[in-house]
Amino acid sequence: MKTNMKFRRIFTIIMVGILFIMSACGNDNSASDSETEGETNNSEITLDSAMGEVTIPANAEKILAPYHEDALLALGVTPVAKWAIGQAVQEYLESDLKDVPTIEWNLPVEQVLNHAPELIILENNMESYEGTYEDYNKIAPTYLMTEETVKDWRKQIETFGKILGKEDEAKKVLSDYEDTVSSARDQLSEAIGEETVAVIWAAGNQFFLFEQNRHSAEVLYSELGMKQPTLIQELGPAVTASWNPISVEKLSELDADHVFLLALEGEQGIETLENSSVWQSTPAAKNGNIHIINDPSNWTNKGLLASQQTIEDILSALVK
């Protein structure tokens, strides 16, 4: 257990540096920003992609979409393999993917070949991958998402719906999600009113304060309408994919009424904050409103399932 926890801590720190490799992809290739549909025959479909117009199989069952398994699962599709860094995976998806084999995050060509996918869905910028587009396309028809689709998980749901012949399912899951957001927004408004909320990720003994548009912070502020403390307002939106740690002394300026602290169980950062007089003097700490989340994975990702789980975490902590 101690060895596994040590590995998870190391993995979390590694993720600080590479988490946004995938989400930042797509800045170099130019292509149409929309996916349009047109059938070529009963077994194929033609779509616009980051590589221009491509024809892909309409009835593929063995799908590989590394790092975007969230969108597949939202549409009821289990991938042939799941994105991983060594043995570490996107934990929030494991209830559905625990029996699915892993594939390394940089997609070694030999590993892709071994999984024998019938369709491969990748991000538009290929720099994160070990192989080239041609390498993967030789293994199976390969679809490259546009930059717009990579950045917008709702667009991913719509695009995957077209690719997989599940457009009706895509519309329904998006509509259901909006209902979830509306209900949660009402509950939170009644529960905490104008109280402010912040999110901090403790990775090792470093702390990362979520800007207003950083991953799950969009769920809090843009979708649920939760109020930003002054320090978050001063930071403004994140303009790069890079994470910048914040000192405990700077955190003393955090005037949030509630703080969600993302930290693995036993993380060093938890003890550091508990022993810090400057941190203990902040409003959230003084009032016992530090809400520790031991699985940061859905909070540090974007997707329909990630957002749903984040909303569940928020309601569990704040709505009594």
Score class of each variant (00 low, 15 high):
residue 248 V to C: 05
residue 243 W to D: 06
residue 248 V to S: 00
residue 287 N to Q: 15
residue 274 E to H: 10
residue 268 Q to S: 13
residue 283 P to F: 06
residue 244 N to S: 14
residue 263 A to T: 03
residue 254 L to C: 02
residue 287 N to S: 15
residue 245 P to S: 14
residue 241 A to D: 13
residue 254 L to E: 00
residue 261 L to T: 04
residue 277 S to L: 07
residue 247 S to H: 05
residue 248 V to M: 10
residue 240 T to K: 08
residue 268 Q to W: 06
residue 247 S to K: 07
residue 271 E to S: 13
residue 247 S to A: 06
residue 269 G to D: 12
residue 290 I to L: 06
residue 256 A to D: 05
residue 288 G to E: 13
residue 290 I to F: 01
residue 289 N to V: 08
residue 272 T to F: 06
residue 277 S to T: 14
residue 247 S to R: 02
residue 278 V to L: 12
residue 292 I to D: 04
residue 255 D to W: 04
residue 246 I to Y: 08
residue 271 E to D: 14
residue 283 P to Y: 09
residue 250 K to Q: 14
residue 258 H to F: 04
residue 259 V to F: 13
residue 291 H to V: 02
residue 258 H to Q: 07
residue 290 I to S: 06
residue 240 T to L: 05
residue 262 L to F: 01
residue 271 E to K: 12
residue 246 I to G: 04
residue 246 I to Q: 07
residue 242 S to I: 09
residue 244 N to G: 03
residue 278 V to R: 08
residue 259 V to M: 11
residue 244 N to W: 05
residue 260 F to Y: 12
residue 276 S to T: 00
residue 286 K to E: 15
residue 242 S to L: 12
residue 253 E to P: 01
residue 272 T to W: 02
residue 270 I to P: 06
residue 247 S to M: 00
residue 248 V to G: 05
residue 248 V to I: 15
residue 289 N to C: 03
residue 251 L to E: 03
residue 252 S to W: 06
residue 282 T to L: 02
residue 273 L to V: 07
residue 271 E to L: 13
residue 257 D to Q: 06
residue 241 A to Y: 08
residue 278 V to G: 05
residue 255 D to N: 14
residue 279 W to Q: 03
residue 276 S to C: 01
residue 256 A to P: 08
residue 261 L to M: 14
residue 243 W to H: 09
residue 252 S to T: 02
residue 282 T to I: 10
residue 284 A to Q: 07
residue 273 L to D: 03
residue 272 T to S: 09
residue 247 S to P: 03
residue 279 W to H: 07
residue 260 F to N: 09
residue 245 P to I: 11
residue 271 E to Q: 15
residue 274 E to M: 07
residue 251 L to F: 09
residue 243 W to N: 12
residue 243 W to Y: 14
residue 242 S to D: 15
residue 240 T to R: 11
residue 286 K to M: 12
residue 259 V to I: 15
residue 256 A to V: 04
residue 288 G to C: 08
residue 280 Q to F: 09
residue 251 L to M: 15
residue 246 I to L: 10
residue 257 D to R: 06
residue 284 A to V: 13
residue 276 S to R: 01
residue 274 E to F: 07
residue 263 A to S: 08
residue 273 L to A: 00
residue 258 H to Y: 02
residue 271 E to V: 14
